[in-house]
Simulated assay, not measured.
Amino acid sequence: MTDVIQATKRDSTGTAATRRLRRAGNVPAVLYGHGEANEHLAIPQSQVKGLLRHHSKMIKLTGAVEETALVSEMQWDPLGIEVIHMDLIRVNLKEKVELTVSVELHGEAAGTREGGILLENLREVEVRCSAGAIPESLILDVNELHLGENATASQLQLPEGVELLTDGDAVLAHVEAPRAQQDEEGTEVQVGAEPEVISKGGGDAEDDA
């Protein structure tokens, strides 16, 4: 999916300028690549949030610049809530690009009906494809995944023209049995129980309060 983004040029850079930009509801961005000069841009924060909702990798810039670009990197605030900077790469829709794509698990693993738990090992893989054919996500069918088995990157459903760069043997998901509820001696233990607190010196815990 390609989102259309309205961009304006930034006349000034630096810490103070970018802070003012963010207070005004914009995200600073840099557009580079193809041997052309870097463009310092401002993108409305609302449109950046739209990119995140759509999981878009490709964007069509309009306004101050007319370019097709790949979202190369997003920098987040310390809490991981807001995007504070974006790196964009100019691309031709026919050229090959390398990027990470999210993995979606589809189906109900047979192993969950056998008492197991389905766990994800990797949520993204690296692929190579033309810039105009970047998939929003890749599908991993887990219906036939039984207890004790795993699914690897080689089992992903790849659209035509998409090449997997991640090792095909990389485990994306597996089904494992729940943790044993008995210790090696057969003594029953309570899963998730709080560990016993032993106070220093062997006294009661209240003595140390």
Rank of each mutant, 00 (worst) to 15 (best):
R20V: 02
S46L: 10
L61R: 11
E98L: 02
L51I: 15
L164G: 10
A133K: 14
A180W: 02
T152V: 05
H174F: 08
V71I: 15
R113F: 13
D77K: 10
D11I: 00
S199F: 01
H174A: 02
K94C: 01
T112E: 11
D208G: 00
H54G: 07
S102F: 05
E114G: 07
V171K: 06
D167R: 06
R23A: 10
L70C: 10
T152N: 13
A7T: 14
L172P: 03
E176G: 02
I43C: 09
N150Q: 14
A7E: 05
E136H: 11
H85T: 06
R23E: 09
L51T: 08
T100G: 05
R19G: 00
S56D: 14
L61V: 05
P78I: 13
M74C: 03
G148M: 06
S137C: 02
E206Q: 12
P178S: 04
M74W: 08
I84H: 02
H34N: 08
A37Y: 03
L140S: 07
D167S: 12
T62D: 12
G50N: 15
G202Q: 06
E108T: 14
D207F: 01
G116V: 07
A69V: 13
A16L: 02
G161W: 12
E82T: 12
E67N: 10
T112A: 03
L21V: 08
V83G: 08
S130Y: 01
A151P: 01
S130C: 07
A173S: 08
A7N: 01
S199Y: 00
L105A: 09
L165P: 05
G202R: 06
D77V: 08
E67F: 04
N26K: 15
G25R: 06
A37N: 03
E114H: 07
G186W: 12
V4S: 14
A180T: 12
R179P: 07
H34K: 13
N38T: 13
A205W: 01
M58L: 15
V175C: 01
S56Q: 02
T152R: 14
A173V: 07
P135L: 04
H85D: 05
N38A: 15
E104R: 14
I43Q: 13
D77L: 09
D3H: 12
G14V: 04
K9Y: 00
V27F: 04
D183E: 07
D208M: 09
L122R: 12
L122K: 09
G33P: 12
G192D: 15
G25P: 05
G186R: 06
N150D: 10
I139T: 07
Q155D: 10
A170I: 02
E120Y: 07
L70Y: 14
E184V: 10
D204S: 15
V127S: 06
P195C: 06
M58Y: 05
R53F: 00
A109N: 01
G14R: 04
D207I: 07
G35M: 10
L52A: 12
D3G: 00
L70N: 11
E144M: 02
C129I: 10
T15A: 11
E95A: 01
R53C: 05
S199M: 04
G111H: 07
E196W: 00
Q190D: 11
D207L: 10
N143Y: 01
L21T: 09
H54K: 12
E206H: 12
A110P: 00
G111C: 06
A69P: 15
E126N: 07
I89A: 08
G203K: 14
H55L: 03
V197H: 03
N26M: 13
A153D: 10
G148P: 04
G33H: 09
A173D: 07
V30M: 08
Q47F: 12
